[in-house]
């Protein structure tokens, strides 16, 4: 159905072919299949594919380099999918936890980049429409009141009011304005140094954590930043099946 060729700045090409819920990742030069995964309700799962018995065995450091290359290409593709706002659907990047952590062992190459339908997102993060509506109405209120000064200040005020409204709900299903230490995922004082500051969290027990990041104007959530946020979330909520990052 879809074929995406990612050409890295060094010229190496990685091809992502998606047919239904199955995604095959190939080397753009040799055509060799590097990975094949299927998107399931448990995330990306590896699928078997034919490998030549005569193919040379790769050394661990070659595997690591290949893994890094595939991950970088996947993040580039994810960024592209995420900024295509005219499409019906939400960009999704699924990979095992180890893929996110630089320098960690390369074990299972299950990885999937693509779009999920709004229906699927509603199933996984049931409060997403509510959060979007809250952000939209709050931004409109602040805009109508005026007197906020710079656009930066406008953004800060909108953030604070959204957080205040969510905290006022006293709903354990939504958490606003928390900070987790980047290295350990331990909760720290909001906005303290070296911590990952989170706008809104929706823990959907037992298996999913949805993270909402509010962006104003032309600001975008960069893929590298998304990976940092999800890494901290994984440490704070270990053992979940889905960690979903949503830009509002």
């Amino acid at each position: 159905d879809e074929q995406h060729t990612v050409t890295a700045p060094d010229g190496t090409r990685t091809v992502f072919e998606t047919s239904g819920l199955t995604q095959t990742i190939r080397d753009g030069g040799s055509g060799e299949i590097l990975s094949r995964s299927r998107l399931t309700t448990s995330g990306a799962e590896p699928e078997a594919f034919f490998q030549s018995a005569r193919a040379p065995q790769r050394l661990p450091r070659e595997l690591k380099r290949l893994s890094d290359r595939i991950l970088q290409a996947a993040i580039s593709l994810f960024t592209t999918e995420a900024i295509r706002r005219n499409r019906d659907g939400t960009a999704i990047f699924a990979a095992p936890a180890s893929e996110y952590i630089p320098g960690d062992a390369f074990n299972d190459r299950a990885m999937w980049v693509g779009a999920v339908s709004q229906r699927e997102l509603d199933r996984l993060c049931p409060r997403n429409a509510e959060i979007q509506a809250l952000a939209k109405s709050t931004a409109a209120e602040v805009r109508a009141l005026g007197g906020y000064g710079t656009e930066q200040n406008f953004g800060n005020i909108v953030h604070r009011i959204i957080a205040h409204k969510i905290k006022s709900m006293k709903d354990p299903g939504l958490i606003a304005e928390v900070s987790y230490a980047a290295e350990t995922g331990i909760g720290v004082h909001y906005s303290s140094g070296q911590s990952i500051r989170l706008d809104v969290l929706e823990p959907v027990r037992p298996s999913t954590v949805c993270v909402y990041d509010h962006k104003m104007g032309k600001a975008i959530l960069r893929a590298v930043r998304a990976v940092d946020i999800i890494t901290a979330i994984q440490k704070h909520y270990p053992g979940m099946r889905n960690y979903i990052m949503i830009e509002v």
């Binding site: 159905d1 879809e2 074929q3 995406h4 990612v6 050409t7 700045p9 970088q72 580039s76 960024t79």
Partner: peptide
């Protein structure tokens, strides 16, 4: 129908997408 689109990302990668 087939659509083709090329995007350059912030990190300098190019993504060529073909959809059938």
């Amino acid at each position: 129908s087939t659509t083709q689109e090329e995007v350059v990302t912030a990190d300098g990668s190019r993504v060529l997408s073909i959809r059938i």
